[in-house]
Amino acid sequence: MKVISETTYYIICGSLLVFTVLTYLAALVDLGEWNLVVALIIAAVKGSLIILFFMHARYSSHLTWMVIGAALLWLGILFSLTLSDYLTRIPFASVLIF
């Protein structure tokens, strides 16, 4: 197991706190639909920093990467196929027009 220096940990922690403030500030600006996207991107960046450095994934084996990849892929399947139903439903009212 590779030893990561304390300095790295402090830097990562600092940037995580900065990103937290950034999320909050971004939410104060009206970006319409993009508010959600920006918030999720920032959260993803924060999550990646934690996984890569705090959880040492950056220095881990390919196997660990595969496990992480599988987890994200399956989460993606759960989301995309469930939403494939909800996002393509025809509202009942518009069916009645036919």
Binding site: T20, T23, A27, L28, N35, L36, A39, I50, F54
Partner: peptide, 23 residues
């Protein structure tokens, strides 16, 4: 590893729950 994982979950919960259209 477990602790950080729980942390990551919160990092996603925070904007999704607290920051919908705060503006």
């Amino acid at each position: 590893l477990y602790w950080h994982f729980v942390d990551i979950i919160w990092i996603f919960l925070f904007p999704l729950l607290y920051l919908i259209d705060v503006h």
